[in-house]
């Protein structure tokens, strides 16, 4: 009886490990997903930029669990210190429709990893890759660029405005805002 219990527990544990072992989670700290994306809608030649997306982004941004993890990590890594709850502070607003460096999930992942010149720190090596995707998915939810059912509901904290879930579906306008770098002369 006891042996059976131990055996079944072991089996259960193994099975649990199996379930946790998602394909895209090779080595969360060192490995990096490598989406082939472009920052500009322009390309040399009339065809438009060459891009190759794995579909990973869709998996993240349509998943309520990932988005809610992203919401937690967004505060954990102090993103809110510079971007508030999406309305912006020293960093630009993330809940609006205007994106300097691209508002597709792949662009946002790049932004978090590499940093951006006018004061966005690089988080490469500081945030595991899958968590970067989760945060990026949460950011996509701020402007309701994710399915309503997956977007977060009301938080327990001081309400900054309507919850992500109650916002009207958004649309992303890439390059719609003049980057701060263009606001200086010379």
């Amino acid at each position: 009886m006891r042996r059976l219990l131990v055996m079944s527990l072991t089996a259960l544990a193994l099975a649990a490990c199996e379930r946790e072992d998602r394909e895209y989670r090779a080595n969360p700290v060192t490995s990096e997903t490598n989406e082939k994306i472009a920052l500009s809608p322009l390309s040399a030649g009339p065809s438009g930029p060459t891009e190759q997306r794995s579909g990973l982004g869709k998996e993240y941004e349509e998943n309520a669990y990932h988005i809610s993890q992203g919401q937690r990590l967004y505060v954990w890594f102090n993103c809110n210190g510079c971007h508030a709850n999406g309305g912006g502070d020293s960093g630009p607003a993330l809940m609006d429709d205007r994106w300097i460096y691209g508002g597709q999930i792949g662009n946002i992942v790049q932004t978090i990893r590499e940093g951006r010149p006018n004061g966005m720190p690089s988080f490469r090596g500081k945030i595991p890759d899958d968590q970067i995707w989760q945060i990026a998915a949460y950011i996509r939810s701020m402007g309701r660029n994710v399915p309503k059912a997956a977007a977060p509901g009301r938080k327990d904290d001081l309400s900054p405005g309507p919850a992500e879930q109650r916002r009207p579906p958004g649309e992303v306008i890439d390059g719609g805002q003049t980057p701060p770098s263009a606001q200086m002369p010379q």
Partner: peptide, 20 residues
């Protein structure tokens, strides 16, 4: 005035540490 100079989104009342 960061709400104007930084193009902040006024739907988030906590933007600019709550000044927005």
């Amino acid at each position: 005035g960061a709400i104007v100079s930084g193009d902040l989104d006024p739907r988030d009342g906590t933007a600019a540490k709550g000044f927005a």
